[in-house]
Simulated scan of single mutants.
Amino acid sequence: MKIKILFALLCAAVTLYSCRNNGEYNTLDNTSSDTALVAADSVYSANQKLIKTADLNFKVKDVRKVGEEVTGLTRHYKGMVMNHHLRSEVERLKDVELDNDSVMRVSLFNTHADMTVKVPAEHLTAFVAAVNHLGVYTTLSDMDIEDNTLSYLESQLRMDSRKELVKQQKQGTIKLKNPQDVLIFKDALVDEQINTKRIDAAVKYSTVSLSFFENNTILKERIPNTNPAVYNTGFGLRFKQAVVNGMHLFAEVFIALANLWVFVLMAVAMWMIYKYYRRKHPALFADKGPVKRVV
């Protein structure tokens, strides 16, 4: 009877021990599988990566002056100007002739400016409010907040896994068949590090895109007349020039005839011979009249 009781107690102890061990293993498995999720939740709740951006489009009285004031505000809020582009486009142009030497040019043009600045994220709201006060009115004001916490966490987890893989490969724990795979993992590790740095920079400094314009401007300026047709001389000067040109032309003709003196002398000699021969033989040059035909 005692043997049966002892045997029953031993079976019960073995069963309880096995159940206890199974429970411990299950607890360890659950703990190991949930470690990453717990870490993810803690990082997500403690270190949110919020990227803030803003877009502003507004009208101002003076584009150049407002550009300088925006630069001053950016320095005040410990930011930096990344881009500043100013342009003026002529819409219409007209020239009014004043005299032969000058014209009045009337230009109608508009002026625009685009700026991109970065300011600390904690000063974004104050900076946008200050810039809004520089304009006559605002045509667009847009502010966005993008949550990159999960992307940041994903990059960190990938970095950790790649670091662990490279570490085990150096220790000889694991061996890769292709040595190029180590370089691929290292390059991927660098990419993830750069991605986290990029997210950190975007979280720290917010990007603000500004576009502002002013009313069309009319500019009048007196400029030299560039049309050569208007530069003509007076009548007296042109007449005097014509007389001088005629004298030059006569001299050129006379010089040309002088170069032909041999031919002129020959022509005179032939004319004298002809006159002499006609005087000696007048019968040859007499007019015999019409010839009568005999039928």
Score class of each variant (00 low, 15 high):
residue 121 A to F: 05
residue 95 D to C: 03
residue 201 A to W: 08
residue 162 R to T: 08
residue 190 V to L: 14
residue 143 M to S: 09
residue 179 P to H: 05
residue 139 T to L: 00
residue 119 V to M: 01
residue 121 A to T: 07
residue 101 D to H: 09
residue 147 D to G: 03
residue 152 Y to D: 03
residue 139 T to W: 00
residue 94 K to I: 05
residue 134 L to P: 01
residue 188 A to I: 09
residue 200 D to E: 15
residue 126 A to H: 11
residue 188 A to P: 01
residue 103 V to I: 13
residue 137 Y to Q: 03
residue 108 L to D: 15
residue 198 R to A: 08
residue 185 F to M: 13
residue 185 F to H: 10
residue 165 L to W: 01
residue 144 D to K: 12
residue 131 V to A: 02
residue 152 Y to F: 14
residue 194 I to C: 13
residue 196 T to R: 12
residue 205 Y to N: 02
residue 143 M to W: 00
residue 136 V to G: 07
residue 91 E to Y: 10
residue 122 E to W: 14
residue 200 D to W: 09
residue 94 K to W: 12
residue 122 E to G: 08
residue 105 R to H: 04
residue 153 L to I: 12
residue 170 K to C: 02
residue 205 Y to E: 04
residue 138 T to H: 00
residue 142 D to H: 04
residue 190 V to K: 15
residue 91 E to L: 12
residue 86 L to C: 08
residue 161 S to H: 07
residue 117 V to D: 00
residue 141 S to H: 05
residue 203 V to T: 13
residue 112 H to T: 10
residue 99 D to M: 07
residue 94 K to C: 07
residue 150 L to G: 06
residue 117 V to L: 01
residue 160 D to C: 05
residue 186 K to S: 08
residue 147 D to P: 02
residue 101 D to S: 07
residue 136 V to A: 07
residue 121 A to H: 04
residue 163 K to C: 06
residue 102 S to Y: 15
residue 101 D to E: 10
residue 123 H to K: 15
residue 191 D to K: 10
residue 193 Q to F: 14
residue 95 D to M: 09
residue 183 L to D: 14
residue 98 L to D: 05
residue 204 K to G: 05
residue 187 D to W: 10
residue 121 A to N: 11
